[in-house]
Design a protein around this nucleic acid. Structure first.
Length: 474
RNA sequence: GGCGCCGUACCCAAGUGGCUAAGGGGAGGGUCUGCAAAACCCUUAUUCGUGGGUUCGAUUCCCACCGGCGCCUCCA
C-alpha cells in the first residue's frame, strides 16, 4: 500500500510521513482566541484536523491531538469590557460555543489546553530565553530578539531585510529590531495580570502555542497545523522562540500543515473585516452533515469559496450517497443478511486509501465514493438482466465499504435526520402509504398524486418502486 | 514594493511529462413507471488563462504577460 505523503510548508514539498515514535502521532493545532462566535472558516480547520486524526488512526497510529484556547489577550480584555463580564467568562462562553459547533459537525474533540492554566510553563520558557540571551527586558515587557535566531524566516520564506523594506507597522522605539516581538507584556492598570520575574503582566501572542505544545507533546512533535494566515508571523515566531528555547538542538515541529482560507464574495472570511458566516446561523439552515460534506469537497489547502449554491449541491450529492446506502440496506433486509464479501469493493477501497494517503485528498476520495454508489445502484437496479446480479454478500461488502469511507474516515453520517427515525412517524407513514396504495389500486390517481404532492410540500419524498413505496425526508 | 498561491466543461472540482483529462451539481435525450421520483445508459473540455521555450512528446517543467487571491497589521 502506498504510504502517507504530507505537504510540509517548511520544505514546500510533499514528504513521506515518518513518525517521531513508531505507531504514535503527536499533533498540535493553533486554536482560536474565544471572543466571538465561530464562523465557517474556523470550522474548516476543525474538520481538516478531524480528518487528519481519523486517517492517522486508520493507518494504525495512536494519536495525541492537542489544541489551545488563547483565553487571555487584548481582544478578550476588550470584549470583557464590552459585555460587562470577566475575561474568564468571555473565554468560557465562546470556548463552549466553539466546542458545541465542532461537535455538531461530527468532530471528535482534541485535548484542549488553555493559557491561564499553563502560565508556569510560559513563564519558565520566557525566563530561559532571557537567560540564554535570546530575549531582553524593557520596562516589564520581554521581547524576543529576532537577530539572535539566524534561521528566522525559514517557514514563511522571507528574510528580515525584505520585511523591513515593506514594513507598514509603526515601530516601537524600545525594540532593538522592528521585527522583535513580545513574549511578555506588562499589565496596564485594571487589566488581568499574573506575577512574573518581570513584574505583573500577561503572555504575548505567540508564546502560548510554543509553551503548550512543548509541554504536552515534547520537542520535535509530528504535526503542527493552522490556517495559512498563521504562517507569518505567528508560526514563524513560534519556531524562533521554540527552537531557541530548545537551544537549537532539536526542531520544534516536524511537519507544518496549513489549510486554506474560506472566502465569501472573493474575500477571505475574517472577523476583522466582518465578512463572516457564523456557523451558528448556518446550522439553522443546513444539516451539519451537509456543511461537513461541503467542506470536504475541496482539497484542504485550496481556498474555498463559500456559497449557498455550493451547499445546495453538497446536499444533493450527499443525498445521492444516502439513498443508495438505504437501497442497499433495504435489499439486505429483504434477501437476508450475509457475510460480507469484500471482493467487489476492494478496488474501490484501494483507490480511496490512495487518495487519502496523498495529502489527505478528500476531494479525490469522494470521487471513489461515488463509484461505489454507482456500482451498488447498478447491481440493485437490474435483478434479472444484470450480468452480475446482486448477491447479499456483495451488497453487504459494498455497504461496509461505503460506511467505512463516509462515516469512519470522513465522518459524514449516512443515516437520515432523526425525525425519520421516530417510531410514531414511521407507523404513521406506513398508514399513509397503505391508504395511498389503495387509491392507486382503484386507479384514483389524482388523489394518490395529491397525497404525494402534499407530503412533498412538507419535505417528505415518496417513491414508488417495483418493491413498494419508500419514503424519506429530503 | 517583497514573499507565495491559483486560473481545467454551464457551475464546482481532482489530476498526470505520453493510455478514453476523475467525481459532483446542472442541462438535454433514452430505459423503467399509471404519472412522478429514484436509478441506470447516452450526450455536455480534440482540450486544461494567453504567448513563447525545454522535450520525441506538456494541461503537467521553465520564462513572460493577462486575470484573481493570500501573507507582509489582528486573523483559522
Amino acid at each position: 500500500m502506498a504510504e502517507l505523503v504530507i505537504y510540509n510548508t517548511l520544505t514546500r514539498r510533499e514528504e513521506p510521513f515518518t513518525p517521531r515514535e513508531p505507531h504514535k502521532v503527536a499533533m498540535y493545532a493553533c486554536g482560536l482566541t474565544p471572543q466571538a462566535p465561530a464562523h465557517v472558516g474556523h470550522m474548516r480547520g476543525v474538520i481538516v484536523m478531524d480528518i487528519v486524526r481519523r486517517w492517522f488512526e486508520q493507518l494504525g497510529y495512536e494519536v495525541h491531538f492537542v489544541q489551545n484556547f488563547t483565553d487571555i489577550d487584548d481582544k478578550i480584555i476588550r470584549r470583557a469590557h464590552e459585555e460587562g463580564i470577566s475575561t474568564r467568562e468571555v473565554a468560557e462562553k465562546y470556548s463552549k460555543m466553539y466546542i458545541e459547533d465542532a461537535e455538531a459537525l461530527g468532530a471528535r474533540l482534541p485535548h484542549f489546553v488553555t493559557v491561564t492554566e499553563n502560565m508556569d510553563a510560559i513563564i519558565e520558557m520566557v525566563q530561559r530565553l532571557v537567560d540564554d540571551g535570546y530575549a531582553y527586558v524593557v520596562d516589564g515587557d520581554v521581547y524576543f530578539e529576532v537577530n539572535k535566531f539566524p534561521e528566522y524566516g525559514k517557514l514563511s520564506g522571507r528574510s528580515v531585510e525584505e520585511m523591513q523594506a515593506g514594513a507598514r507597522i509603526e515601530v516601537d522605539e524600545r525594540k532593538r529590531n522592528p521585527e522583535d516581538f513580545a513574549l511578555w507584556k506588562a499589565a496596564k492598570p485594571g487589566e488581568p495580570a499574573w506575577d512574573s520575574p518581570w513584574g505583573k503582566g500577561r503572555p504575548g501572542w505567540h508564546i502560548e502555542c510554543s509553551a503548550l505544545s512543548l509541554r504536552y507533546l515534547g520537542a520535535a512533535f509530528d504535526i503542527h497545523a493552522g490556517g495559512m494566515d498563521l504562517i507569518f508571523p505567528h508560526h514563524e515566531n513560534e519556531i524562533a522562540q521554540s527552537e531557541a528555547y530548545l537551544r537549537c538542538e532539536q526542531p520544534f515541529a516536524r511537519y507544518w500543515l496549513h489549510w486554506g482560507p474560506v472566502r465569501l464574495r472573493q474575500e477571505k472570511m475574517s472577523k476583522s473585516t466582518g465578512v463572516v458566516v457564523p456557523i451558528r446561523e448556518l446550522r439553522q439552515q443546513y444539516e451539519p452533515a451537509v456543511i461537513r460534506y461541503f467542506l470536504l469537497t475541496v482539497h484542504y489547502r485550496t481556498p474555498l469559496e463559500f456559497s449557498y449554491e455550493r451547499l445546495d449541491e453538497a446536499k444533493a450529492a450527499l443525498e445521492r450517497i444516502r439513498v443508495a446506502y438505504q437501497r442497499g440496506q433495504a435489499f439486505l433486509r429483504e434477501r437476508g443478511g450475509a457475510n460480507a464479501d469484500a471482493s467487489v469493493a476492494e478496488p474501490y477501497l484501494q483507490q480511496f486509501r490512495t487518495a487519502m494517503n496523498h495529502d489527505f485528498n478528500t476531494a479525490q476520495a469522494l470521487a471513489t465514493v461515488f463509484e461505489v454508489v454507482r456500482e451498488l445502484n447498478t447491481r440493485l437496479n437490474t435483478p434479472e438482466v444484470a450480468v452480475q446480479p446482486a448477491t447479499p454478500a456483495e451488497v453487504a461488502g459494498l455497504l461496509d465499504a461505503l460506511h467505512w469511507m463516509m462515516e469512519t474516515v470522513l465522518g459524514v453520517p449516512l443515516s437520515m435526520p432523526v425525525a425519520a427515525q421516530d417510531e410514531t412517524i414511521q407507523r404513521l407513514m406506513q398508514c399513509v402509504i397503505a391508504w395511498r396504495q389503495e387509491l392507486r389500486a382503484r386507479k384514483l390517481y389524482d388523489l394518490a398524486d395529491r397525497v404525494r404532492d402534499d407530503l412533498k410540500a412538507m419535505g417528505i419524498v415518496l417513491e414508488d418502486t417495483p418493491q413498494g413505496t419508500t419514503w424519506r425526508i429530503a
